[in-house]
Design a protein around this nucleic acid. Structure first.
Lengths: 200, 200, 200, 200
DNA sequence: CTCTAATCGAGACGGTACGTCGCGTCTTACG
DNA sequence: CGTAAGACGCGACGTACCGTCTCGATTAGAG
């Protein structure tokens, strides 16, 4: 399942130079995101930090946002493979806990990705990557699955953002509980859903 | 209650000319939002549309966002007075239904306010205006009230955005049910709170 | 006659700031022309030297060439008023001598204007400013006046360029003789032309 | 005489492929000059049109101008061999007429070469190729031979450019007369030189 | 009903980032 | 193992918008 997510990333270049440039740009962006909000980052800064020419940026990405999309896709992909089955699997809560632990272990990265104007792009990317994950049969009848998907992802991100912004430290376990009860639970129709092996 | 919300708006000008200019600017922005996304709107466009000088804009608002904040505050204020008590009152579901009906009656306005880069500002303004509304005792123990507030407002906006984007028409009643069950319910501690008409 | 030349310069701005910027730009270009060939000069250099913003350049001139045209027009205008009647007047040779003396007194300026890719623009400007000066009746029948005009101006410039490039110093008198015999003489039909007061 | 002109062209390559590439590049440039001004032509365009690699261009010519120089040299060489003795020979006017007829027969080529920013390079090339042609003794004493050479070539080109730009067709004979009287005559010292058919 | 000061329109200005283009070099990948 | 294809660093271009500023001209509201 998660393999298909990786495969979704298209047009990986062949030329060694292109690979190098692209990697440098991604790295530079991740680097800069640790220091500055995404909005404030300039394409020129990215190029400079990457040690690449300014015009070269545009040979790879049409806009700053596209680069962020690429970076985000990769990180989210990692995140998803880490957390395996989120909603439907046999160990739902374990998955959520994995996710929280992973985010906790990379607080800085995810703070950067989810703050400073980047959030909406990351959210869209996450929506994309999770679009095949859900099982429609889990939704209550009054709740359109697409809406459930959107609100679920958004709320989860909201919770994570809130967590990452907190001064006093909440443990991953606490946040996992919150996510489970506040985000997942309302979406899943416990009474109706077939408890059998979901996602075919 | 809603009076205090209005009172929060500061520094309403005295001079008749200032009032006129400010009103013209607000109107111009609302006008333009019907045609273009907020990001794409230029201060120069706003000034021109308002029939006011370019510099005059800055005599009233430091940034484009500030103007949007002003406009949004007013609209949200109207929305709040329309929907009276949202979560805690005796007729919770009625309030939500009022809200949906009001938004439905002004689809274009709220589409403009909630799409095209403006959403986050509107969300912040709504967070501000609803910050005194909630009753902390309603929250379950595992859920920090501040987080509940944030996720609640964000989710509600998500639902509305989804609704406004839909091609096929969902009725206000349907959306009210969704809001009630998907957004409000999970936040409110069902054991303590007075049982509303929802949750089945 | 020369008054009309001055009048030809259009759209002199009213705003004091515009006048100042424009003057600064012209001055900067003249300045830089002393050091570098016109081709090598960058609009950014001009702006910087003028102490003006980069974008401001384009508020006054669409291209580098346009600025040069403006500068050249002014200098040529001065040159023309200095040398009064060139071809037809009662003291033809005196005029030519005046011109040579004037150029000699401003060798650096005219070297800059006539070398380094600028020559063709200066030539065009000079063609423009002298277009009303000639008396068609002075041309021999086998020589189209327009051609005479072009070749005359071009040749004169060629002579001046050659002069300005010379290491050993030719006196203005010598050059005046050359101009008179090599450039003017072949154009003027001595046998046919009425020696009376030309240009009506 | 004209042989020595050809000999001036250096480093004709041995490798057959190099010859082919070089010829292709020259052809491509001539081709493009029919459609676009020289300034506007890109090295990439030339390479593409020539069916050769972009980098290949630089293996043969350091700049676009160098290629034009090469092309121009060849064409001028042909022109010169066509018109044999220009100024001094026994049949001066015949030579000039030959030249005019040849240019007339290749209007498009020479229009391309003499317009669109290419003129100065062609002029320089022509100056180079004619530098050994003149007979210094023909010049009047007040006229430095080098200056005579320059002004002569420049004026001749001016006349040709004017001719090629004309809408209404002047005959080669007419232009030959103009060249003879306007360009050659003033340079040649009439007292010493053999009186040609012109000047009357 | 005037006088005065605040506010207005208009728009030029210095700045900064953008995205495009062409150059000339230099590295690939392929035949 | 050489050669075409083309990615790259560089740097100028011209555009757009920002927020500041300097001007009169207008006009509201205090005296």
């Amino acid at each position: 399942m998660s393999v298909s997510l990786i495969a979704a990333r298209i047009d990986v270049p062949q030329d060694a130079r292109q690979v190098r440039s692209r990697k440098a740009l991604c790295g530079a962006l991740l680097d800069l995101l640790q220091e500055t909000a995404f909005d404030q980052i300039t394409i020129r800064e990215i190029s400079t930090r990457a040690g690449t020419g300014y015009a070269t940026f545009f040979r790879h990405y049409p806009t700053k946002e596209a680069l962020l999309g690429d970076v985000a896709a990769e990180e989210i992909c990692t995140l998803m493979t880490m957390t395996a089955t989120m909603m439907s699997g046999p160990d739902r809560f374990g998955s959520i806990l994995d996710l929280c632990n992973y985010v906790d272990a990379h607080r800085k990265l995810w703070s950067a990705l989810l703050t400073g104007g980047a959030a909406s792009i990351v959210r869209d990317e996450m929506l994309l990557q999770t679009s095949q994950l859900g099982d429609e049969r889990l939704c209550p009848v009054w709740l359109p699955p697409e809406l459930a998907h959107r609100v679920g992802v958004s709320s989860a991100i909201d919770v994570l953002v809130w967590w990452l912004e907190q001064k006093e430290h909440y443990s991953p376990d606490q946040v996992a509980i919150i996510l489970d009860r506040l985000v997942i639970d309302p979406i899943v129709d416990k009474l109706v859903a077939v408890p059998g092996p979901a996602s075919g």
